[in-house]
Design a protein around this nucleic acid. Sequence first.
DNA 1: ATGGCGGCTATGTTTACGTCA
DNA 2: ACTGACGTAAACATAGCCGCC
Length: 342
Amino acid sequence: MELGLTLGDSSKPLIGLMEKHPHQTSKELGLGFTTTLSIGPNITTQIDQLQHEEQNTRTENLHQLDLLPQLSFPWNPPQNEFGVSSRSLEVNVVPPVTAVAVAEDEAVLSSSPNSAASSFQMDLCIYSRGGSGGGGGSLSGSGGNKRDFSDGEGYDQRNSSRVSDEDDNSVLGNTRKKLRLSKDQSAFLEESFKEHHTLNPKQKLALAKQLNLRPRQVEVWFQNRRARTKLKQTEVDCEYLKRCCETLTEENRRLHKELQELRALKTSNPFNMQLPATTLTMCPSCERVATNSTATSSVTNNTSAATINASNKTSDDSTSKVDIGFPFGKSKFQPQQHLELN
DNA sequence: ATGGCGGCTATGTTTACGTCA
DNA sequence: ACTGACGTAAACATAGCCGCC
């Protein structure tokens, strides 16, 4: 049984839900049981890896490593006079005026009537969204949004797209033009995302420069990427828990059935129940009495004939009763010692 | 100590775009 | 070729947290 995450985030194939929600009870998570589950022989290794990686991640976060300059990607674009990659990207190339603005760290747009920026401002008039803050660049309609695009990024996008769409003469009014990132750009961002899931401002600027994008675009891409990763991980977790639940239900059903059979056997032929004492074991973790077949083996051992301690020869129910009911809620119970799913 | 401010992230929503029947 | 449904991803909106002053 293999559960994998395939969204370019293979570094974290499986994250235990409990680890991710250390302060939430299983009930809050909607699980209805408190267990640490183990599926497949590799789960411990995976968790160890994840813990190790998480530690690394924490270390990264603590030191805020600026890894970008050291990154070596399949292609390392040469720089043009703007300090911007001159590699030709198929789409979404920021026009020179925007590139300059990026290179100058989102410089305030020139108001010179003859400059390219002036036409840019004209485009702003076309593309400013109605009722969203006006031409000042602020998109905070309700005052709750403190991000007011003071760097003008949000409008660069419309400008660049407008320039690229001038040929088709499409007047889009209040609609925003959205451009797909090129494969190279996406791949580069993915590589960077593998290195670190968040960017500090320096890294953001460096990435934007290298990819010929605006810092805001890089920022948004990382936001969306994190969201996608989380969504995917949630789906994986849900599927994982669903399978665990199914397995545990089946195990519970099987054990109840086994218990019934034992009781029936005991009732019908009490003298044949005198069996060696060694067949009864105590689970070291949950301190519950269990038979050998369940305490040391796997749930796949369906045909095991559970035995009852021979010391209970008297057939006294109070002493010979074997509680095989699944011990949900036992805090010490660690199913990974009992369950192995194939 | 406290409040305002700016920067950041997480999360949810909107919307443009690509694909496919 | 055209079209509508649908999925995806870029962009946006909002709330909350944190550090700084």
